[in-house]
């Protein structure tokens, strides 16, 4: 990706917004290169939606500013909006209008010429497998189809920057994959995509991610860079009694009996243990001492583990 010399697609400086007593977004600095698929991660209430809504100019910042597609959201929002497409978290089309009527209405508002509208709509809908539902009312579509329709509607004016607020939340896995296939296509065409998601497997598909917590960006980088931030070595432990094993290991954190144990988490029936050393012998020993039979093997850090550990290390620091 050649991003040097060109201006970034999104550049936020000190962007802040408060709701009553809650500082939803707290001085966010963000630089998103043109053509990136940028994942905005973080727990519910971290400020993802507020940040995206400010970038989409539907919400005014209290402080700071952002340039989106080259224009200030504060001073020139009318120049930003023609260049962006924004999908809010809530499905925001008219449920009583058909697929075609919805797309046509918003495209007409955005000044897409009449002769272009029909062909572009059919091309988009065919690409998304929605062509046969042109005349169905939007409210009668499935969750996944609704999101694809919403995306199609935001693509009608061919925006340079796409702002997507949890577009796949509540969507079945097959439709999620389908949705990301479409995003990958847009990425190839050079569209910049900012996508908020609670799904870590989706984060893996981004060119860059940022982890937002309490309105601030805690970590930012490519998925590989984020994973590299995790110190030590990761091991997976399968035990006869995972809960007892978790208790035993948690009791040993920061104890001389188990030196170098950084963190331990339970994922389903599997324990993920982060060690400073490459040798898991001390874990074996600790579990045997507790009378728990277990198998320990090295594992690769994925995004989910990375953020769990980073969040924990961040709060411990």
């Amino acid at each position: 990706m050649t991003t040097t010399a060109t201006a970034p697609a999104i550049e936020a400086t000190g962007l802040s917004r408060r709701f009553g007593d809650v500082q939803a977004v707290d001085g966010v600095d963000l630089r998103i290169a043109k053509g990136a698929v940028f994942g905005l991660l973080g727990p519910d209430g971290a400020g993802k939606s507020t940040l995206i809504r400010m970038l989409a100019t539907v919400l005014g910042p209290d402080d700071g500013d952002a340039r989106v597609a080259g224009h200030s959201v504060r001073r020139a929002s009318e120049k930003v909006t023609p260049l962006i497409g924004y999908m809010s978290q809530q499905f925001s089309l008219y449920p009583d209008l058909t697929v075609a009527e919805n797309i046509d209405f918003f495209a007409k508002l955005r000044g897409v010429p009449k002769d272009v509208r029909r062909t572009r709509m059919m091309k988009l809908l065919e690409g998304m497998g929605l062509a046969e539902f042109v005349d169905r009312q939007a409210g009668k579509l499935s969750g996944g189809m609704k999101q694809k329709l919403f995306l199609a509607s935001t693509l009608m004016h061919e925006p340079d920057v796409l702002l997507l607020d949890e577009p796949t939340t509540g969507v079945d896995p097959v439709s999620r994959r389908e949705f990301w296939r479409i995003l990958a296509g847009l990425h190839r065409q050079g569209t910049t995509v900012l996508v908020a998601t609670p799904y870590m497997d989706e984060a893996e598909r981004c060119t860059e991610v940022a982890f937002l917590e309490s309105g601030r960006i805690r970590h930012q980088g490519s998925p590989a860079q984020i994973k590299a931030l995790v110190p030590g070595r990761l091991f997976e432990v399968t035990a006869d009694d995972p809960r007892a094993a978790l208790a035993a290991l948690q009791a040993s954190v920061d104890r001389p009996s188990l030196p170098g144990l950084l963190s331990v988490h339970l994922y389903g029936d599997v324990l993920r243990v982060l060690l400073e050393t490459d040798d898991p012998a001390s874990v074996h020993a600790a579990l045997q001492a507790a009378g728990i039979g277990a198998e320990v093997r090295p594992a690769a850090v994925d995004m989910e583990t990375a953020f769990a550990f980073l969040a924990e290390l961040g709060t411990a620091a």
Binding site: A56, V58, T81, I84, Y86, S88, S92, Y94, F106, L109
Partner: peptide, 9 residues
């Protein structure tokens, strides 16, 4: 839908 209207011209 008011947000979609708001970001239209």
């Amino acid at each position: 839908t008011d947000e979609q209207l708001a970001i239209s011209p």
